[in-house]
């Protein structure tokens, strides 16, 4: 602008000192590019932990369903011996499946939170921070993984109480945590992507409910792939939940599994999920 007034009096440090705001006058310097992703993921996960600390009811109520699965379904089918598990007691066979299932149920409704954050203006503000969309989505995805991890820990303890002989090898448990985090990142990104498409909470609830059961039953969480009809095998082959369950069984029970393939698929699924959700997040910002 031609007539823009120049030469305004320089800002004096005095008023800032009066309010004691001097330390707030310097804009924080940007971090190097590689720092952004881990820093944002860390910040989002911390928020999730803080929320869990303020309100633990969700942690308790969410333990009910997996407990029922293990207690009723697990105990019953252990007695019936209807499902060929390769010599493992059915309850043991089921426990990793229930860990995966309960973590998925949390992640698949994570998009509801995104929609709530959109409606309340929280998301708007997050989108105006120096955070690339992909880093924001990754942050949210792994924050949902924090919840899923807590859930997995609860189910592990429940299963142990019911007499399931799970491993306590720390390295294997680390692998379990990684598998739960990656799968949870995928399912929460799936949920956020759907949120970006349907845009309202009610529709997302509907879609979420419609896909959780097919994902669950179309996986090896309850029964081995060998007993499935061919079409269901095809579903299971493209279902990341199956790879997660396979990895968890291998790590927790020591049954034969395909750990390398499982982790590759989970990594690829998480990356694809983050990409899709970051592309669709813009629709929520409009």
């Amino acid at each position: 602008m031609s007539a823009a007034p120049a030469g305004r009096p320089p800002v004096s440090a005095e008023p800032a000192a009066a309010l004691g705001l001097a330390p707030l006058l310097t804009t924080p310097r940007a971090r190097p590019g590689w720092w952004v992703l881990p820093a944002r993921v860390g910040a989002m996960c911390l928020v999730e932990l803080q929320k869990l600390r303020h309100d633990r009811t969700e942690l308790y109520t969410r333990a009910v369903q997996p407990a029922l699965w293990l207690l009723i379904f697990g105990e019953t089918f252990t007695r019936i011996r209807a499902i060929p598990t390769g010599g493992v007691p059915y309850l043991d066979y089921l426990a990793p499946g229930i860990i995966a299932q309960s973590a998925m149920f949390i992640a698949i409704f994570y998009g509801i939170m995104i929609i709530w954050e959109r409606d309340s203006g929280v998301l708007t503000k997050l989108l105006v921070t120096p955070t690339p969309r992909a880093a924001l989505v990754a942050g949210k995805a792994f924050a949902s993984g924090v919840k899923s991890l807590m859930q997995a820990a609860v189910v592990l303890v429940l299963a142990t109480l019911l007499g399931v002989a799970l491993t306590w090898n720390p390295l294997r448990l680390l692998g379990v945590a990684a598998a739960v985090l990656l799968a949870s990142a995928f399912f929460s990104c799936l949920s956020m992507s759907i949120a970006g498409i349907v845009l309202t909470r009610d529709r997302l609830m509907g879609v979420g409910q419609a896909i959780t059961m097919p994902l669950f039953f179309g996986s090896n969480a309850l029964y081995p792939v060998d007993v499935m009809p061919d079409w269901l095998r095809a579903v299971s082959a493209v279902n990341p939940l199956s790879y997660q369950v396979d990895a968890l069984r291998g790590l927790l029970l020591g049954t034969p599994s395909h750990l390398l393939l499982d982790f590759l698929v989970l990594l690829a699924a998480a990356a694809a999920g983050i990409t899709a959700a970051s592309c669709l997040l813009g629709r929520l910002a409009r």
């Binding site: 924080p28 820093a39 303020h54």
Partner: peptide, 29 residues
């Protein structure tokens, strides 16, 4: 360079005031 306060009341109700502010401090490095 910008601080933005949207039209809606946009603080996160399930965090404390301090946690709300600290989150933005972290997001701006």
């Amino acid at each position: 360079m910008i601080g933005y306060v949207p039209q809606q009341l946009s603080a996160d109700a399930s965090l404390t005031g301090r946690e709300n502010v600290a989150l933005f401090a972290r997001l701006f490095d």
